[in-house]
Design a protein around this nucleic acid. Sequence first.
RNA 1: GGACACGUGGGUGAGCGGCUGAAACCACCUCCCUGCUAAGGAGGCAAGGGCCUCACGGUCCUUCGAGGGUUCGAAUCCCUCCGUGUCCGCCA
Length: 426
Amino acid sequence: MHDLKYIRENAVDFDAALARRGASPIAADLLTLDESRRALATEMQQAQARRNEASKAIGKAKAQGNEEAAQALMTEVAELKKTLPALEEKERDVATKLKNTLAGLPNLPDEDVPAGADEDDNVEIERWGTPRSFDFEPKEHSDIGPSLGLDFETGAKMSGARFTFLRGQMARLQRALAQFMLDKQTLENGHTECAPPLLVREEAMFGTGQLPKFSEDSFQTTDGRWLISTSEISLTNSVREQILDEAQLPIRLTGLTPCFRSEAGAAGKDTKGYIRQHQFEKVELVAITRPEDSEAEHARMTKAAESVLQALELPYRKMLLCAGDMGATARKTYDLEVWLPGQDSYREISSISNTGEYQARRMNTRFRPAGEEKGTRFVHTLNGSGLAVGRTLVAVLENYQQEDGSVTIPAALQPYMGGITKLEIP
RNA sequence: GGACACGUGGGUGAGCGGCUGAAACCACCUCCCUGCUAAGGAGGCAAGGGCCUCACGGUCCUUCGAGGGUUCGAAUCCCUCCGUGUCCGCCA
């Protein structure tokens, strides 16, 4: 959601920023709507003011027993009531149209976001770790996994494609990874652990920007609720419609939840393996900050996500997404891509975004500045994966695979595996 | 799922259909007094929007869970929904 005042004063910049994402100019349309809305509002409010004034006068006239004056005023108000509802409806219609147009627009990219249309234009910031050299041909996880309990067939049989059934040591490995990540984010990185709802109302989906434009990406229940596609939705909306004290900021949250995605439009992509599922687990990081702190928080949160990869000794690279490849709500995004030797490529395992006040406006989340500044200001919100558990499982399988089909457990993870150091084919 | 009750500003909580955008208290801010691990006094303090102003600010509109309705006029009456509480039923 955007600030109309900003658009009024910076129409050219606004369109230029949208153009960087490949969106068409819209400022002129918005301003036309805005102008007519304000003109209607002024007209409507003048009529309302007269009605209110007359109504008060009626009360006074009646109190003084002046029935004649009261009657005259009532006649006048009756006349007003013939025109007022039409005016109110017109104003409402224009306001709704304006709001809907605004609600469908993506965030503006930050100035230091590189230009570009798609992932080919993303900029590599740095690499961490050295990909292991194999003295055999490394396999993909979808070839290593099945004999260790990653059961694609059973999942598909009961639920369809993109659902997987984990059993035995594989299920335990996923649980261990999730616990490990949660401990890292809470004990070391200062995020508060949360266990939020997985089903949310439409307003919550709107608040974080999944609606109205991306309804096809999520699942909806028969009673109209939505399955969260990420716990960013539940965690971020925990502060919706609130006016926070400045002293409460920053608020740093984390949570482990399943995420549900319909993956519409991803036909043919990653059809093999555990990379792209309708249901997957993710440890999410969310931060609510003052506007002036969000950039530093973005860097800090990215490091928090990186800390998991480093502890697991998984090589990765950090990408700065170009304007055309960012999600609609983001104004700046770093992706962490983990090295997958079986695929011989880096694959996304975390995406950390600063949305600025885009979501805060949609959720109406503000804070009251301490000191003499009057009024309220919108907070900034950030979210990132810390990390996607399923994809981390994939990375462990591929990076720690042995020639005999077994997989060693990263040292940091062993305490979470009850001392098991290796997954072996039963 | 059934019955009843409730939903007011940052918080607690008053509020005969016109004098209430809202008492009082707490929190917070400014000032005064006084000082010693405390306090006392004065004042201010909802949000969003329109119009006027270089600005300080002024003025009007909307909002008392949300949406409808009754009325010249609604926080106050009616309906629907959402939420909360209590009791009953069911249940991991």
